[in-house]
Nucleic acid binder design. Structure first.
Length: 490
RNA sequence: CGGGAUGUAGCGCAGCCCGGUAGCGCGCUUCGUUCGGGACGAAGAGGCCGCAAGUUCGAAUCUUGUCAUCCCGACCA
């Protein structure tokens, strides 16, 4: 176990907070609820951004940027939307500071009050749809497939590093379409993109589904989601894609002339993932020794640690290490040679394990003489001695093997912790223990809320293409047509 | 917004009950010895004790106020 890292069993939430800070991913800032993302954590986010951005572009999307500030009046236009976000908005009321004439330091200049307050965006539907009105006149202007990488602010009561911060980074796609079918297809397509990203890159298996009316995004007709299961048995919503219908087009008067020369409202989607994925990544794979990063998004994929007793040995092992680094980099790997002279090998081993580097190569004088290298895997915490010859190919293969193993392990955990239950007692008992529960639901919000009240479990999603079958609701005992998934969630 | 807790060196903490001018561990700096799983020795640097009043000859310590943060809930990506 890593020094000073709380174990998961001891206190899962403390383990998480501890790990985020110790692995140098992020730390609390001077501003309540806002974090500083440190270089190592930000590097992971950049790999996420890079992969997602490529996938967005491959599916025909382009990037744009819209303002941070939104006129207050915009929020009133869509009733559900304002209700959903009103309680967590940061509001700008003034535009100038001054020195307090009474010597109280810098104060807000009361003469600099804004005519209309500005809301720091909690999400950008309103400002974007106000803009789209000017962009869209004809069916020939559609579809619009825009994404933006941005920060947003939601004034949360209680925050946690990456999982829920007052300010967070995300991408938000906002698309406009000529008809309903195309918009629904777009929302579904982006759910596919998120699924692929979560599973192939982050090695996080996800369930795909649609939210109940109660859990739907404010202003959406349908909210599709990917849900992941964390190691403590709680679910985490990892991404959402919304079919917005014509709600925003109506609220912002966005119409187009169709082929029949008739004026119609535009159909919309929006979809996003955030730095919350960092939290999902950490909680899916990491252990009591620290982070476990899937090779595809690990800022450092291979770390090389030289072992030596004197200057001469230091020279030859570092030389061999540098040579190996060059070869690995030529093969496209991200490599760090840890030639610091002020730390002993043991210290370095623990540090890189804490930071989740997938593979560690150790080169001592013995290895140089015998043409070998010690190869250690972070995911298995195993090590073996391999020949220096042909090592590049072996390490390259290891990357995929580790990526697959991490995914498989998470998938097994997820499957082992998804339970089908048919009685209310079994439901309560299982929710208490943790995991995802698959049970019959009568389809009413009333039942959903009662279940939440009594067990704190929420209806996470209704599976896509859910099969209709007859059963009885696990709570109400009323006839039910389908099984859905419940869990306690982040 | 309810409940709990904490503010003393970069980090983690002790000292407070019983007032007398601040200490420990880690880290940091320099030198030497070390180096195949978190090294050791020696010598150093670093703090108006969250802030503001009050009591007192004297406050990290007592009183009052205030600010902030963290944790657990309710709400949310």
């Amino acid at each position: 176990m890593a020094k000073d890292l709380t174990t998961r069993k001891e206190n899962y939430s403390q383990w998480y907070n501890n790990l985020v800070v110790k692995a140098d991913l992020a730390e609390q800032s001077a501003v309540r609820g806002c974090m500083v993302i440190k270089p190592y954590g930000y590097a992971i986010w950049e790999f996420m951004q890079d992969a997602l951005d490529k996938m967005f572009k491959a599916t025909g999307h382009v990037n744009a940027y819209f303002p941070l500030f939104i006129p207050k009046s915009f929020f009133g236009r869509e009733a559900d939307h304002v209700e959903g976000f009103a309680k967590e908005c940061a509001v700008v009321t003034h535009h100038r500071l001054m020195n307090d004439p009474n010597g109280g330091g810098v104060v807000v200049d009361p003469d600099a009050k804004l005519e209309e307050e500005l809301i720091v965006r909690p999400t950008s539907e309103t400002i974007i749809w106000d803009t789209y009105r000017n962009w869209i006149k004809s069916y020939r202007d559609l579809p619009i497939l825009c994404n933006q990488w941005a920060n947003v602010v939601r004034w949360e009561m209680r925050t946690r590093l990456f999982l829920r911060t007052a300010e967070f980074l995300w991408q938000e796609g906002h698309t406009a379409h000529a008809d309903r079918e195309e918009a629904v297809a777009e929302a579904r397509r982006m759910l596919d993109v998120y699924t692929e990203f979560a599973e192939k890159w982050l090695a996080i298996p996800v369930y795909r589904g649609v939210k109940s009316a109660n859990e739907r995004f404010a202003g959406a007709l349908d909210t599709y989601c990917i849900e992941a299961l964390m190691q403590d048995g709680k679910a985490l919503q990892a991404g959402t894609s919304h079919f917005l219908g014509q709600n925003f087009a109506k609220a912002f008067d966005v119409k187009f002339l169709n082929k029949e020369n008739k004026l119609e409202h535009v159909w919309a989607t929006s979809w996003g993932v955030s730095t919350r994925l960092m939290g999902a990544l950490i909680m899916s794979h990491s252990d009591d020794d620290g982070l476990v990063l899937p090779p595809k998004i690990a800022p450092i994929q291979v770390v090389i640690v030289p072992i030596y007793k004197n200057d001469e040995e230091r020279t030859i092992t570092c030389q061999r290490g540098a040579e190996l680094k060059q070869q690995l980099e030529a093969a496209g790997l991200r490599v760090k040679l840890d030639d610091r002279d002020n730390q002993k090998p043991g210290y370095k081993f623990h540090e890189w394990e804490l930071k989740g580097v997938p593979v560690r190569l150790v080169i001592g004088p013995r290895d140089v003489k015998e043409g070998t290298v010690e190869v250690a895997r972070r995911d298995l915490m195993s090590k073996e001695v391999m020949a220096y010859e042909g090592l590049v190919a072996k390490v390259t293969e290891l990357m995929q093997a580790i990526q697959d193993n991490i995914y498989q392990k998470a998938l097994n955990f997820r499957n082992d912790n998804t339970f089908e239950v048919d009685t209310w007692d079994a439901f309560k008992e299982q929710i208490e223990k943790g995991g995802i529960v698959h049970a019959f639901w009568d389809g009413t919000t009333e039942t959903e809320l009662k279940i939440k009240e009594e067990t704190k479990a929420t209806l996470r999603f209704i599976p896509l293409d859910v099969k209709e079958e007859n059963g009885t609701d696990v709570y109400s005992g009323k006839p039910a047509k389908m099984r859905v998934y419940f869990a306690k969630a982040y």
